[in-house]
Amino acid sequence: MSLGLQRGVCFADKHLHHQALRRIEQADREEAMPLEDGLGMRQLAKALFAVVVARPAKAVTEGRMRSSGPRTPSLQTGRWTTVEAIAMVDIAHWTCPTCKVIVTTPFCARCGEEPIAPRTLTLRGLVEKVIHALTSIDARAARSARTLLRHPGELTLAWTSGVRKPYVAPFQLFLIANVLFFALQSATGENVFSSSLDSHLHHQDWSELAQSFLSQRLVATNMTVEQYEPLFNSAVVMNAKSLILLMTLPFALLLPLAFLREHRPFMTHVVFSLHLYTFLLLLFCAALLLAKLSALLGLGGLDAPMVDNVLSMAILMMCALYIYLAIGPVYGAMGARRTVKAIVLALAAAAIVLGYRFALFFITLFAS
């Protein structure tokens, strides 16, 4: 149903438009006839004209239609009720409960507070708020993920430039990817970060060092490997989920060294790092699905060296490509230096992932 904003009318029923004009003319001839709710005929007529004819079209373009009270006419009748019209008039002057100042806009300019309408305190109002919050987050998350994957660097550039309303915050987007990754890891039974004790002892580059430290830990706790292994395996999964943010910090510290001449604020490096590792988590999600498919086909999962090596190389190449495309718009990198920096930073990101798994072993070993 067209709302007719181009014609300056917020609904299709033109009859109400002319009716409002007639009521204003009638009110000019009559002296403010009092209504049951205490609003004069002249004031109400002008309020109706301002609310249902002129104000909505302008408010839509300025993004000012968001308030806790109803702002749109009924889709069945195309008309505003008297209570809704009065609510729109009353919103012109209200006192912010937080700042204790008189406000003449739908939102407080200091803190963003909005006036409380009676409908907000009802069950229906609560349900509407919850539905709006959920759908708003979903829409922004989908838009953020799409921009992250299709246009590397633009999401970082938009966030650091102040364009933040259409997108999810970098840390929040990272957490969403984190939840998705660990949900898939649990569903597929494959492990990327939370490697088992047996994997640390026999299938990692630091296996000899791990065996040495494990022996010392078993002596200190007076336990056997069979007794300690279940404790370690359950603890490492929890630590991998809660400490995964640690990967982003070393990379954020490397970026100022790689782009010394650009003099970007440190927050730019932090946001870039969060977006990069969000992208890597999404790549790991795809790798988990491919590893599970490979296992179903009889080729083995991530425990098979061939599958692990192929997926690792693919992730490394995709990481380098993402960094190459992203550092252009964010840091203005160009030419051969852009290629070299992309390769070096991709190798650094991979090293940080391996270092994170290595750190998880020692954190879990001495904390469990």
Results as ranks from 00 to 15, higher is better:
6 Q>S: 13
18 H>A: 13
23 R>M: 06
24 I>H: 01
32 A>H: 11
32 A>T: 11
34 P>M: 07
37 D>E: 09
44 L>P: 01
48 L>F: 06
56 P>T: 08
58 K>F: 12
60 V>S: 07
63 G>R: 06
67 S>Y: 03
74 S>V: 01
82 T>S: 09
87 A>P: 00
88 M>G: 00
90 D>N: 13
112 G>C: 10
113 E>C: 10
117 A>N: 05
126 L>H: 08
128 E>Y: 02
128 E>F: 02
137 I>W: 12
137 I>L: 14
146 R>A: 14
146 R>M: 08
148 L>K: 03
150 R>A: 14
162 G>D: 11
163 V>H: 06
163 V>K: 11
163 V>W: 01
168 V>C: 02
184 L>V: 08
186 S>C: 04
191 N>K: 13
199 S>C: 05
200 H>D: 07
200 H>L: 05
215 S>C: 01
215 S>G: 15
219 V>R: 12
224 T>R: 03
228 Y>F: 15
233 N>W: 02
236 V>W: 02
248 T>I: 10
250 P>W: 04
251 F>A: 05
252 A>D: 08
255 L>F: 04
259 F>V: 03
265 P>H: 07
265 P>N: 09
267 M>K: 10
273 S>R: 03
273 S>G: 08
280 L>A: 01
282 L>D: 02
283 L>E: 15
284 F>M: 09
288 L>Y: 05
292 K>N: 08
295 A>E: 15
296 L>R: 13
303 D>H: 11
304 A>L: 00
306 M>T: 14
306 M>L: 15
313 M>V: 03
313 M>G: 00
314 A>H: 02
316 L>V: 05
341 K>C: 08
345 L>C: 08
357 R>H: 04
359 A>W: 06
364 T>A: 08
365 L>I: 06
